[in-house]
Design a binder for these strands. Structure first.
Lengths: 242, 242
DNA sequence: TGGTGAGCGGTTGCATGCTACTCATGGGGA
DNA sequence: TCCCCATGAGTAGCATGCAACCGCTCACCA
């Protein structure tokens, strides 16, 4: 957090602080379960309590922190149940959006998608976990963006950010990384064929796999927690997609 | 807004003010396009500017108002495009959630659903538009809640609130009200048969119809705006549901 | 007459003072 | 020894002060 001097750009302090705190959480700099005070954060950032407090309220609305009255703020330790809920939503939303994106994509868009895909591969080849995750996010959000529904894209971005607080450590294992890469390869192929149905299926597969890897990873790190119950929940909604 | 004295309960002033302002917008008391100032709102509510300001930031994040730097705040006039985007999301999300709800529902839940359904009919019979909308919302949110995904339910509630700012005047026309009632009847029937697939279809039909009525209504009230383009967009995503 | 800039009313944005609340601790009483 | 309550340290929540900023009007000048 030492690098966190608010820039002097035109953006309001509150929004700058919001972004910084969010970044601090998703980067793992502020750890789940840990206690922080608005006063302390304000001092560390060199601003007054007000913008920090406002930023924390916004982050609370996003579900990243919980403000405890007169006690301080705590980075939320996302439960497996909540992770599953978030993925349930993503698995419902992303396939149709991506399919629509495949329909609407221009040739130029397809080129750009391949560029973004290349960046994932580069980052993965370099063994840079965080960069891989970031590139993956940009790839998917670009694809979703093609559907022309800005609110859906923004919603998905938020949902992805939420799980990042737990996903950093668990996702990038060797074998699983290869599976995810294969998934993406398939998405690309379907895109290039402009086979929207196949895109939807591939995206669904990809997100579902991500979810299951994450659930398995988290439950493995948490003694006395069975992944089984949660794994079955993942498909419980999406299997009803009309 | 005269009835808006913050209660003295345990809840924080900020959250009380947030709820009041949100209610004021959805009830039409604060009108889209109109300009308001935090100072004025604070005086009217009898509180200081701080909780009002914080409430407005939260509402901005919800997409209900836009804060204009050093100028005041404006209730967002939702464009047809945004309305369509919101409904695209709802049409994707609600059917599978409702279908899962149908699976998970207890007998007691089914009774409760029927009670809520009765309330819609009562309100509609009394010709009470706002109450009908409110009851309709409760009905659907209860059904979605049965799916056991609190985040999805909350998300849907927010999406519904957003269109309420435009929906008040346009929805409750005589003929369309009957169609919507028929839709709900069908949802209920499918629920009682525990036919989750039929529930999904009925919900999808219902939400889609609501969307089209709203789009048609808004475009009719707006000279020089063709509904056609927007009506076709509504199904553009959901047709890809896997 | 047309254009320009200085002043003004009004607003947010941020800082800070104060109060009430929460929790932990330690001392005193049973 | 154990329990209870008083006390204190630390916090968020709210009110308020102040400055920077925006857009508008209107007078002044070319």
């Amino acid at each position: 957090m030492s690098s966190m001097q608010p820039l002097t750009t035109g953006a309001s302090l509150t929004s700058q602080v919001t972004d910084m705190l969010r970044a601090a959480v998703t980067s793992g700099e502020m750890r789940p379960g840990e206690h922080y005070s608005a006063i302390g954060l304000a001092e560390k950032l060199g601003v007054s309590r007000t913008p920090v407090r406002e930023a924390l309220q916004l982050l609370e609305k996003e579900g990243i922190v919980r403000i405890e009255k007169n006690r301080g703020v705590r980075v939320i330790q996302m439960s497996l149940d909540e992770i599953v809920q978030i993925f349930q939503i993503r698995i419902i939303l992303e396939p149709p959006a991506a399919a629509r994106g495949a329909e609407a994509a221009t040739d130029r868009d397809l080129e750009q998608i391949q560029v973004l895909h290349g960046r994932i591969l580069d980052a993965a080849a370099a063994g840079d976990g965080p960069r891989t995750l970031q590139a993956d996010k940009e790839f998917h959000l670009y694809l979703l963006g093609l559907a022309g529904n800005a609110r859906l894209t923004e919603l998905d971005r938020e949902l992805r950010n939420l799980v990042l607080t737990r996903g950093l450590v668990t996702i990038p294992s060797a074998r699983s990384g290869q599976d995810l890469a294969d998934d993406r390869r398939e998405i690309i192929n379907a895109l290039l064929r402009r086979d929207s149905k196949a895109v939807a299926l591939a995206v669904r597969e990809h997100v579902t796999r991500t979810a299951k890897l994450l659930v398995a990873g988290v439950s493995a790190h948490t003694p006395g927690l069975s992944a089984e119950e949660y794994l079955t929940k993942i498909d419980q909604l999406s299997k009803h997609c009309t």
